[in-house]
Amino acid sequence: MSSVEVHRAGDRFRTSAGWLESSHSFSFGQHFDPSNTGFGLLLVSNDDIVAPGTGFDTHPHRDMEIVTWVLSGGLVHQDSEGHNGVIYPGLAQRMSAGRGILHSERNDSWRLTGGAEHTEPVHFVQMWVMPDEAGIDPGYEQLEVDDRLRTGELVPVASGLPEHAADAAIRINQKNAGLYVARLAAGRTAALPTAPYVHLFVALGAIDLEGTGPLATGDAARIEAAEAQRVTAGPDGAEILVWEMHAALR
């Protein structure tokens, strides 16, 4: 039987560091709750706002698939494998930490474009899942998916699920997990995937989840034995991030 556990935006762990406002769906950093250390294969889902000219200085990661989805602004990525670039809304990005990688992430707004300095915060969601195998080569991949999102459908943007081998924007090294994104116009409806574990996060706007009720910006639903529940966008539309998972960490 399917079960749904709703977690409201206001109940998330929060980190405030002046340059950073971060809301954590699961235990993270100094915030630890043994009953909330992840869901399915998803260990981290951080909703971050980083001030202009600031960001995360160079730091290490190991044995983790890290997917970053930008909601507004631009995020500059640089890593020890020589990858660099700006992540922006509609660009899917994955970093495989593998046997070890160093990277930094900073707000792109300090850059000058056409002689004008941009001073907006960058708002993004970063999600971590465990890979299938430890100690793989570090890797990086990104791809523009903005055109596909205009369909209003759930778009597989980062996946290792076999059924997405041909249509996922970018691949992750985890055969039991995949991330979808949908940008829903007001009143538009979409069906969630059928899977043992589904994590639904309302990144922007508001939705109504079939059988559960309204979810606002920052709210999440952890659904077990999901059976294609439908979501309907509110009057201002919505952007949702949906993980389909066929295994869980034990």
Rank of each mutant, 00 (worst) to 15 (best):
L192Y: 06
R183A: 12
T189I: 07
H199P: 00
G178L: 01
P196R: 08
V198Y: 01
G187T: 07
A191K: 14
A203G: 11
V198A: 02
A185C: 01
P193C: 03
N176D: 14
A177P: 05
A182V: 03
L184M: 12
V202A: 08
V202F: 11
T194S: 15
K175A: 14
L200K: 07
A185G: 14
V181T: 09
A186N: 12
A191D: 14
A186E: 10
Q174V: 02
Y180M: 04
A186P: 14
T194F: 04
V202S: 04
A182G: 14
K175I: 10
A190K: 03
A191R: 14
R183F: 00
R188Y: 02
L200S: 05
P193W: 04
N176P: 00
A195R: 04
A203T: 11
V181F: 06
V181D: 03
A203R: 11
A190H: 03
P196D: 05
G187C: 08
A191P: 04
A186Y: 11
T189Q: 14
N176I: 00
L184Y: 07
Y197R: 14
N176S: 13
Y180Q: 07
R188T: 09
P196H: 08
Y180H: 14
K175T: 13
L200Y: 03
A190F: 06
A191N: 13
K175W: 08
A177H: 03
Y197Q: 08
V181Q: 15
H199M: 13
G178P: 05
A203E: 13
G178I: 02
T189R: 15
A177E: 03
A177N: 04
N176H: 15
L200E: 05
T189H: 08
V202P: 10
A191Q: 13
L184D: 11
P196S: 10
G178Y: 07
L200W: 05
A195T: 01
N176R: 10
A195D: 01
T189W: 01
A186D: 11
R188E: 15
T189F: 02
R183N: 14
P193A: 03
V202G: 09
V181M: 13
F201K: 03
V198K: 01
P193S: 09
N176G: 05
T189S: 15
P193G: 06
P196Q: 05
L192P: 02
Q174I: 01
F201L: 13
Y180E: 08
Q174K: 06
A185Y: 00
P196N: 06
A195V: 00
A190V: 15
V181G: 01
Y180T: 04
A195S: 09
V181N: 03
Q174C: 12
G187D: 09
A185H: 11
T194V: 12
A177W: 04
R183M: 06
T194Y: 00
L184G: 05
A182F: 12
A177D: 02
A177R: 02
R183Q: 12
T189N: 10
T189D: 11
A190L: 07
V198P: 04
P193Y: 05
P193T: 04
P193F: 00
F201R: 07
R183E: 15
F201Y: 15
A191V: 02
T189M: 11
A191H: 15
A185D: 14
H199R: 12
Q174F: 05
P196G: 05
L179T: 01
N176W: 03
R188S: 13
A186M: 10
G187K: 07
